[in-house]
Design a protein around this nucleic acid. Structure first.
Lengths: 225, 225
DNA sequence: GCCACCGTAGTACCCGGGTACGACATCGCT
DNA sequence: AGCGATGTCGTACCCGGGTACTACGGTGGC
């Protein structure tokens, strides 16, 4: 049985959550808190398994309440809920030690399975937020794959399909030249440039010149200045 | 309609996935791949919305296949599935650009909602993995106000004029996202994206997004991968 | 209370970029 | 002599990107 504490300043919201949770035979609502301080106090008294925590509350907000609850050290997990998927809240909440972060417009089933996951020690983050977190931090994830060797100066395989001329064009694309500029500076017709560009995009599987610019940087054809 | 490509070396497994997906009226299975190379090739040909990618496959494994698919730059999302929730795989997969990482013992509904989330540009990570990721990285999340240690590498002067949101947008521009992609993935209207982009270009004296991409690389906002 | 800034959203318009064709000359290899 | 790869040039078409506005709610500073 999962003991839950609901912390939300809106009574109607609390009621909805309570109804939903009580309809499950593996969950009970221990009590309800209307602000952060109450949530902290009740958590200390009742030691629920999970606190369903709203972010926006008068007085002590959900983030700070989460910080104090997790700092206390007992095994109560905090699942933060918010109306808006503001990433500032997500970052702050997760930093504060929350085990999860869901948006209120989620499906009831998602909330329920989220509570169960959190209760068993797992963690959940709303997909829309996961996206932002990944975008921001995926690059920083530890690389333990052995394929992180030193880089030789040989031509990147992604560029081998290109002819010399095409690599030349790709280089100036990577420097931000427009087709017109390439044409005048290299004494070509614009149609010729377009032909080259088209072939480059096809051979490198780039959908537009932006991808080509990125490729130029990633392969080292163009170096950051 | 969500077009899905199934990549798994076990025929029985593929069959199961196909049955599950075809039972949904908003999903179709475009094709099946039995190894990584096939997955990459078929993705290029068929441009599915989502690739259901197994990690362990003979030849080119799921991680490397994911890397190549996402490197290609088209809008196909990769949802990685694995039997074991080994975090090495998860790290590698997410670093490779996967939009999600689920374990195979998940409930069918979880898989389906995961596919839908990924198709609309969101991201999903299995709760058991989210827990590990949070444990490892919650400390590294950007600080809001509280006193925090290491400085986040001083901002390049050319970017100081930008607001936080604008820098966020510039980052994804630097990753080659189109306006439409930015809109869907960040849950914005395309007009809003255009407004942001316009301001970014004005503030950074860039004549088009290409110059902005170059600037993103030169200032280190985006790093070569 | 007012105002500046920010993020969001909309409409209308123009233009460069990309695609899909076809065409021709040169060069090197067989 | 024939052929393929490469580089050059052309036309026609469509769409995404960029610009130029306007607008409005929220927040924070004064």
């Amino acid at each position: 049985m999962i003991n839950v504490l609901i912390a939300d300043d809106q009574p109607l919201q609390r009621f909805g959550f309570r109804m939903l949770l009580e309809s499950q035979d593996d969950m009970t609502v221990l009590s309800e808190a209307a602000n952060g301080s109450e949530a902290v106090r009740m958590t200390a008294q009742l030691t629920p398994d999970v606190v369903l925590m709203d972010v926006r509350m008068p007085g002590l907000d959900g983030i700070e309440a989460t910080r104090r609850i997790t700092a206390a050290g007992n095994r109560t997990r905090v699942l933060i809920l918010t109306t808006f998927d503001l990433d500032e809240y997500a970052y702050a909440g997760l930093r504060a030690g929350a085990s999860g972060f869901l948006v209120k417009d989620a499906q009831p089933e998602e909330l329920l399975s989220g509570i169960r996951a959190v209760a068993t020690g797992d963690a959940v983050v709303a997909p829309s937020l996961t996206r932002r977190l990944l975008d921001a931090y995926a690059h920083h994830l530890p690389a333990q794959s052995p394929s992180d060797g030193p880089e030789p100066t040989a031509l990147d395989p992604r560029l081998t399909a290109l002819t010399d001329r095409e690599r030349e064009i790709l280089t100036v694309i990577g420097q931000g030249w427009t087709n017109t500029e390439i044409a005048t500076r290299l004494h070509l017709a614009e149609s010729t440039v377009k032909t080259h560009v088209g072939r480059i995009l096809a051979k490198t599987d780039s959908r537009d010149r932006i991808q080509a610019v990125i490729l130029a940087y990633d392969t080292g054809l163009v170096k950051p200045s």
